[in-house]
Amino acid sequence: MTLCRDAGFEPDVRLGTTDLLLHLRLVEQRHAAAFLPDLVWYGHSPTVALRQLPRGQRARRISTVVRRGGSRHPAVLACRAALLRAVTLRSGRA
């Protein structure tokens, strides 16, 4: 929403879903436009026209939440470490 507003227009949001492949299919069928992460294209070429995002603040906050006492579980530690590595590699801070 903020990216659209910063670009000078109010987005007309008619559908919301966390299913990235549904977003992609709607764009491919020309029923929608979407902000899609690079992960959607992992392993193959884009199937739709890609546009550069406008300059400025482009950030996303990711939080992890676990049950009390679960923060030291090996799977939780591995997941959080993988997220940190991905951010570090993507931002060039490696």
Results as ranks from 00 to 15, higher is better:
1 M>D: 12
1 M>F: 10
1 M>R: 13
1 M>C: 08
1 M>N: 13
2 T>Y: 07
2 T>S: 14
4 C>N: 09
4 C>M: 04
6 D>T: 05
6 D>M: 02
6 D>G: 04
6 D>N: 14
7 A>R: 09
8 G>P: 04
8 G>W: 01
9 F>N: 03
10 E>F: 00
12 D>H: 12
13 V>H: 02
14 R>N: 08
14 R>Q: 11
14 R>G: 09
15 L>A: 07
15 L>Q: 07
17 T>R: 02
18 T>H: 12
18 T>F: 08
19 D>G: 03
19 D>L: 01
19 D>V: 05
19 D>Y: 05
19 D>S: 08
20 L>W: 11
20 L>R: 15
21 L>C: 07
22 L>F: 09
23 H>S: 06
23 H>Y: 04
27 V>E: 04
27 V>G: 05
27 V>N: 03
27 V>M: 03
27 V>P: 00
27 V>F: 03
28 E>Y: 00
28 E>K: 08
29 Q>K: 14
30 R>N: 13
30 R>G: 08
30 R>W: 02
33 A>C: 13
34 A>G: 08
35 F>D: 06
35 F>T: 00
35 F>H: 03
36 L>Q: 01
36 L>I: 04
38 D>A: 14
38 D>L: 13
39 L>D: 13
42 Y>A: 15
42 Y>H: 15
42 Y>P: 03
43 G>T: 01
43 G>R: 01
44 H>Y: 10
44 H>S: 12
47 T>L: 08
47 T>C: 06
48 V>E: 05
48 V>R: 03
48 V>K: 00
48 V>C: 04
48 V>Y: 00
49 A>Q: 14
49 A>H: 10
50 L>T: 02
50 L>M: 06
50 L>Y: 04
51 R>L: 12
53 L>G: 07
53 L>D: 03
53 L>Q: 10
54 P>C: 06
56 G>V: 02
56 G>N: 03
57 Q>T: 11
57 Q>C: 06
58 R>K: 13
58 R>C: 09
60 R>K: 13
60 R>W: 08
60 R>P: 00
60 R>Q: 14
60 R>E: 12
61 R>E: 11
62 I>Q: 06
62 I>N: 08
62 I>W: 08
63 S>A: 14
64 T>S: 13
65 V>P: 03
65 V>S: 11
65 V>A: 12
66 V>W: 05
67 R>H: 07
67 R>Y: 05
68 R>Y: 09
69 G>T: 05
70 G>N: 08
70 G>T: 00
71 S>I: 02
71 S>K: 05
72 R>Y: 05
73 H>M: 07
73 H>L: 12
74 P>H: 02
74 P>T: 03
74 P>V: 02
76 V>F: 01
76 V>C: 04
77 L>P: 01
77 L>S: 02
78 A>S: 12
78 A>F: 01
78 A>E: 12
78 A>K: 11
78 A>L: 08
79 C>G: 00
79 C>M: 14
79 C>Y: 14
80 R>T: 06
80 R>I: 02
81 A>V: 01
81 A>F: 03
81 A>K: 09
81 A>D: 10
82 A>R: 13
82 A>S: 10
82 A>V: 04
83 L>R: 03
84 L>Q: 14
85 R>F: 00
85 R>Q: 10
86 A>K: 06
86 A>L: 11
86 A>D: 10
86 A>I: 01
87 V>P: 02
87 V>D: 11
87 V>N: 10
88 T>A: 13
88 T>W: 06
89 L>F: 11
89 L>W: 11
90 R>S: 14
91 S>M: 09
92 G>T: 09
93 R>P: 00
